[in-house]
């Protein structure tokens, strides 16, 4: 099966995480043009460091969740030329619900839910001009199986999933579709730190007896962006090696 894409330019929101870098490489290798967002100089440097051999084959753009000006200027830069969006952006706030700082809760929800709705609105309106677009939200199995302390993370993920789901419901008839991916344990970023500490527990919990690799997740995302997956709309896919299927 050869994977075909209906479009070329892909915005990777939250483009500074390792998974985003691996995805960007897979995209470039598939002749797509990824645009990775960063929120500070360290993020921009991380992108450049991860993709040294691909200069000119990808773009970058400043986007800080909660900062409307950064969103406007990013889309001024992108113009009307956007075919795909992959959203990795996610702030973290670990706290028991009964212990959470009120101000922090409001800020967290504003940045991770309300602002995401603005990102979706902006991207959706650009895509509506062409009546074509595909958006993938990277959620997590923690959205449905959180540990104690992950309540706000799970709330933000589930709320964001709902936004993406509805977008696919509302604009599917206009050629704009959405899909949500829920990875389980992945050997990257926050997951790697956790797994280094809890390796035995992770292996025991996952039916395939291993964590997923970044490459596996990147290739799954690429497939979800392809024409072959265009019938999958406004729903979620779990890629967790079977983690959440059993007790």
């Amino acid at each position: 099966m050869s994977i075909k894409f209906s479009g070329n330019r892909a915005l990777i929101v939250g483009g500074t995480c390792e998974l985003a870098h691996v995805l960007a490489v897979s995209m470039i290798e598939s002749s797509l043009f990824p645009i990775l967002t960063f929120r500070n100089d360290a993020g921009l440097n991380a992108i450049r460091k991860a993709l040294p051999q691909f200069e000119g084959k990808y773009g970058t753009g400043y986007l800080k969740f909660g900062d409307r000006g950064s969103l406007n200027s990013l889309f001024t830069h992108i113009g009307d030329d956007l075919d795909f969006l992959v959203d990795f952006a996610q702030g973290n706030y670990e706290s028991f619900i009964a212990q959470a700082d009120e101000e922090e809760v409001y800020r967290y929800c504003m940045e991770n839910i309300s602002f995401r709705a603005e990102v979706l609105k902006t991207a959706g309106r650009v895509m509506l001009k062409k009546r074509k677009g595909r958006l993938v939200f990277i959620s997590s199995t923690a959205a449905v199986r959180p540990n104690p302390g992950q309540g706000f993370y799970a709330a933000a993920k589930l709320a964001s999933e709902a936004l993406y789901r509805n977008m696919g419901l509302e604009l599917g008839g206009r050629g704009i579709t959405t899909i949500i991916l829920r990875p389980g344990y992945v050997n990257a970023g926050r997951g790697r730190v956790y797994m280094e500490e809890q390796e035995k527990k992770v292996i025991e919990a996952v039916p395939i007896k291993r964590a997923l690799t970044q490459k596996e997740i990147a290739e799954t995302v690429l497939f979800l962006l392809s024409e072959s997956a265009s019938g999958m709309n406004a729903t979620e896919i779990t890629v967790d090696g079977g983690l959440t299927a059993g007790k």
Binding site: D80, R125, L128, K129, E170, L171, G173, R174
Partner: peptide, 13 residues
Amino acid sequence: SIDLLELAVAINS
């Protein structure tokens, strides 16, 4: 509703 959304986008554009 969906037509109005498209109309808004077209007017903006």
